[in-house]
Nucleic acid binder design. Structure first.
Length: 440
RNA sequence: CGGGGCGUAGCGCAGCCUGGUAGCGCACCUGCUUUGGGAGCAGGGGGUCGCGUGUUCGAAUCACGCCGCCCCGACCA
């Protein structure tokens, strides 16, 4: 992609309204633009990141056996009246009236809607289990939106819903999603910690929040170092015993955010040298809620003995748009963003420091062609800008690799290849640069 | 929703107290000189001063009302 075709409104100055680093960097790097409080437009660069995260989440959901659907953003109030939540949900729910004076709402979540859909095709125990997900915009009219996309009113979320014949089967679904989350966050380049969450209406041990570590995170995290040392398991979704073992391994050691933290227990259970106190950001939530919605919305199946029971359900959320901010919180320095390769909008930022120099232009164009020809995503800064401007932009935008073409190197037949995260740099031939990038 | 603050050019701000028809830096446009870490000089374009009402000969400035945005708190993916 040529920078001259790809609008990236970067800014040198910090916007006054942005308090936390990810919000500042997202505005400075031209990823988003605020439309209203807690509502953002996604500009080209931010949109690419959002889509990459979405794709990774989708791939892991599919691998775990979930099936994608797409439900609407606008829902009928009648549905919510059936579950009793229309009154309960309060002012966070954005209520809308259409031209026929019909009460509608912009969905803050989709339990009711998925139940209505599932009731269509779940008739028998033989139709179970099922696990459906969608990735859709939600709206919660927060009292106080803040922190940019981290706490917006409109946000993109992956939510899925499991349907099982009984509690034991539902536990297996829960375990599958638990593993899917560990794998998803790893694939996003993050370190995640499952922490016990406020138990749902059913109680028990089936509610966890997934927190990713970031120095500037909003929540305090207290855990046993053992959790951080576990390797993330492979996709063993079809092995119930192994899944149970994995969940036990990850939920056994102490882990809590500050709202659920019990200092005495922490000190009693975790040896001093293994105690970790860090900051984190909540990016996912898995929980089991039994028959709460299936009962009220009539998602019932016949059992072999002819009796009829409501299905056991769980729901599982990942804040996709929030993750863009969270990933920046987890990876940045004083010059800009440090994207993990898996979600970087481009793998390579190519900067030609002397656009109007024919030799440089030729070298940069050749470098661009060989990278794109090899299937590498590269943003070529072909603007007629000064070296400092381009280099500062490269750092701000945070591409994992920087390839710098300038008159100094071109005279020797080399380009400068730099790794954004480590700052390591080498003067290499264009061919070597391509090879090193491909080999990484 | 309670408490606090701010709305002046795309971004950051001054001007307001003490009314006289809008200014600075960055960004943008033109030219020249520059050219490996956000250049220099010269010239230039861009603003319903958030909106409304009022006071006044005259309002960015004073008064009242409204709207928007930000921060702290309670609440949350």
């Amino acid at each position: 992609m040529l920078r001259t075709r790809f609008p990236v409104p970067t800014q040198k100055d910090d916007p006054a309204e942005a308090q936390i680093v990810s919000h500042r960097l997202m505005l400075r790097a031209g990823l988003v633009r605020q439309a209203s409080a807690g509502i953002y437009s996604w500009l080209p660069m931010g949109f690419r990141v959002l889509k990459k995260i979405e794709d990774i989440v989708r791939a892991e959901q599919n691998a775990a056996g979930a099936v994608e659907v797409l439900m609407p953003t606008i829902q009928a109030a009648d549905l919510w009246k059936a579950s009793g939540r229309y009154e309960d949900y309060g002012l966070e729910m954005l209520r809308i009236t259409d031209r026929h004076e019909r009460e509608m709402l912009y969905g803050p979540t989709n339990e009711e809607q998925i139940c209505e859909i599932a009731a269509e095709f779940l008739k028998s125990y033989r139709d179970l289990p099922k696990n459906l997900y969608h990735i859709q915009w939600k709206f919660r009219d927060e009292l106080r939106p803040r922190f940019g996309v981290m706490r917006g009113r409109e946000f993109l979320m992956k939510d899925n819903y499991s349907f099982d014949v009984d509690a034991a089967a539902s536990r297996l679904s829960y375990h599958r999603m638990f593993l899917a989350y560990l794998r998803t966050f790893q694939a996003l380049g993050l370190t995640s910690i499952p922490v016990r969450a406020e138990s749902g209406p059913i109680g028990g041990d089936m509610s966890h929040e997934f927190v990713i570590l970031a120095d500037t995170g909003e929540s305090g995290v207290f855990c046993d170092r053992g959790i951080l040392d576990h390797p993330v398991p492979g996709p063993v979704y079809d092995d119930p015993e192994e899944l149970q073992r994995i969940v036990d391994q990850w939920t056994g050691p102490y882990a809590a955010t500050d709202d659920m933290h019990e200092p005495e227990r922490f000190e009693r259970e975790v040896p001093e040298e293994r105690r970790v106190e860090a900051r984190g950001i909540e990016v996912g939530h898995v929980f089991y809620f039994g028959t709460k919605y299936s009962e009220k919305l009539g998602v019932v199946v016949d059992l072999p003995d002819g009796s009829r029971v409501p299905v056991e359900m769980g729901s599982y959320g990942i804040g996709v748009s929030r993750l863009v901010g969270a990933i920046i919180e987890a990876g940045h320095d004083d010059r800009g963003i440090l994207w993990p390769a898996s979600v970087a909008p481009f793998q390579v930022g190519l900067a030609n420091l002397r656009q109007n120099d024919p030799a440089c232009a030729e070298c940069a164009a050749a470098m661009y062609d060989s990278l794109t020809g090899a299937g590498v995503e590269v943003l070529y800064d072909d603007r007629d800008e000064r070296a400092g401007t381009k280099l500062a932009d490269l750092d701000l935008l945070g591409f994992p690799w920087q390839v710098v073409v300038g008159p100094r190197g071109v005279a020797q037949g080399v380009v400068e290849l730099r790794a954004r995260a480590t700052g390591e740099s080498a003067e290499v031939s264009p061919e070597d640069a391509l090879q090193r990038i491909q080999g990484a």
